[in-house]
Design a protein around this nucleic acid. Sequence first.
DNA 1: GGGATATGATTAACATGTTAAATTAAAGCC
DNA 2: GGCTTTAATTTAACATGTTAATCATATCCC
Lengths: 173, 173
Amino acid sequence: MTLKKPAGSGGAHPVERRIPMRDFSKSLPMSLLRAREAVMKQFRPSLRRHGLTEQQWRILRALAAVDAIEVTELARVAFLLGPSLSRILRDLEARQLIERRTAKADLRRGVVSISQKGLKLIELVAPTSESIYAAITRRYGAQKLAELQNMLAALEHSLAALEVTDAEPSENE
Amino acid sequence: MTLKKPAGSGGAHPVERRIPMRDFSKSLPMSLLRAREAVMKQFRPSLRRHGLTEQQWRILRALAAVDAIEVTELARVAFLLGPSLSRILRDLEARQLIERRTAKADLRRGVVSISQKGLKLIELVAPTSESIYAAITRRYGAQKLAELQNMLAALEHSLAALEVTDAEPSENE
DNA sequence: GGGATATGATTAACATGTTAAATTAAAGCC
DNA sequence: GGCTTTAATTTAACATGTTAATCATATCCC
């Protein structure tokens, strides 16, 4: 709280503050960030024990749900940018958790699938993961959780319409 | 969609799939991640035009609201881990957007404040930022937005109780 | 069918996330 | 008062986020 000035406590020139702006910590991006971090904090230790990062786990899970998938589509599903995905796939392939080939019809496209070893790893991690998810659901309430996810989806949908409203007001080039 | 196998299309051994798990893309972490990304996508172009990242902007905003603040407290408020904050403060100081000193009472503690130059930058960015936030609020609905934030805060609070329920079920000791 | 253009994927470069280790200063203890 | 322990911050090391550039292949189009 303390809003007093040090009154010449360091030699540097103290500054007048107070620019009218929304309370920073209550902004929507911060609310979403904190909420997500609170959730992921529950999962990370278990993933880490199995040598997986959050993103690697997302990829393996996405792959476990299909027979094979193209890299671009995988990026969309796992919500990763191309460069991140590219690096992670390189590592997962080196660990033999996934397998890759190229599409016969279009040599530019890569096709990825999970390996037997990858499936075994998923089977090892999934029970704990599901258990944590269940605990969260119990704690917060299944009903409320569903409602929250609806509201999040609605938010996403709302903003898809705006889409990068570019251009500065005062910076006429 | 297509769930058929390539039937010997690459030489590698195709794999039996289907491990029973929640639909990955509908998980809470993914919902929160996508929602946040949809929001930040609106802000990033403007910040970028002013040479700021999302995190740098968080720090400057936090600093603009106080006269001075200790590094640890700043990390808490801006929701950044120590190492990230340490690097960013180094850069912001080099750009003369902030000023640092050490607490007289405890030489371990760093004290940070925003500079005049930093304040000017904030004044330059804030209008666009506020305008974007207003547009989001209009689009989604102020009422709904408030409710969403309440639910996010409640989620955070719920999970604070759980706090890292460690220990694997099948990995005794 | 060959050159311009577009697309899928990767690489490059820099910023941050994440955990562990190192560094420096305080506090506690005897 | 010196020694151990604790605390604040930074550094180290590696993984990912983010944008731009590169590379290879496809597609267009004349």
